[in-house]
Amino acid sequence: MRIIAAGLRSTVQDRGRFAHLREAVPPSGPADPLAFAAANALVGNGPEAAAIEIVGAPFVFACDDRRVVAVTGRDVRVQVRDRLDGWTAVFVRAGMEVRVLTGERSRFTYLAVSGGVATEPVLSSRATYLPAGFGRALRAGDALPLGPSRVDPARAGRSLVPTEYQDEGVRAITGPHAERFTEEARAVFFSSTFHVDAASDRMATRLTGARVAAPKDEILTCGVIAGAVQIPAGGAPIVLLAEHQATGGYPLIATVIAVDIGRVAQRSPGEPLRFARVEREVALAALRDERRALAEIA
């Protein structure tokens, strides 16, 4: 595929580089894993396929042969001849110019192309990680190799229900260090409305608002995962996202459930965010439902 316009900071991502966590390589991968998986499923790719995470508009491309494409994310559409909805498989002929349309609220937009992006893997993954020079931000004029694709025109028009991004509530399980916080601190955390700070990125969504009292004793650095909510000494929560470091040294009060991580990542600076406490069974049931929905379309 040829990139005609690359947006602000668009990168190739696969589901993440998990095999090298013990060498402190961040997993990377999509900030909104569910939207990413949906885009791949819509075009008939397997879950291991690489796609493009788009940040900033405009993103325009064309393919040298016919392909099925899908655009997912918050407040997204796609224009081939006509404007079409996001979260829908679109059939694209060779050479046709495709424009990814984003809205004011879009943060991370996913573009999957049938066959998948077939850039050279680094440490067994195609996930871009800029600080270590694994891949780079895409530029206009780039030509990306695609994997072989059996294009099934019948797939065009299939769609998935977009994630509900407007809702300010996200679900979270109590975190591994929850017991170290006071009852009051936990109550503040699970009852306050926070706001997203402008310093948020692929590494973490940073929140402002109510101060959550951190435990008096420092904790020793431990391994962390996307969705983990850290409370540094200042009391402003940090929700870790795909590009998080393999380890972290702040106490973990809660963990956002897997299916809601993308809804945290896609909040724009200034937007509200609240945490609703749920049990692990709820998280598992939600994840099972998501996987089933993707399996049905794939």
């Binding site: 095999a19 966590l21 020793l220 650095t221 391994g223 393999a246």
Partner: peptide, 17 residues
């Protein structure tokens, strides 16, 4: 699944399904 050991703790990842 994959595991991440640090000073006195270990993160253990697994597939709950």
């Amino acid at each position: 699944g994959l595991a991440v050991p640090t000073y006195t703790s270990v993160l253990l990842r697994y597939d709950p399904f």
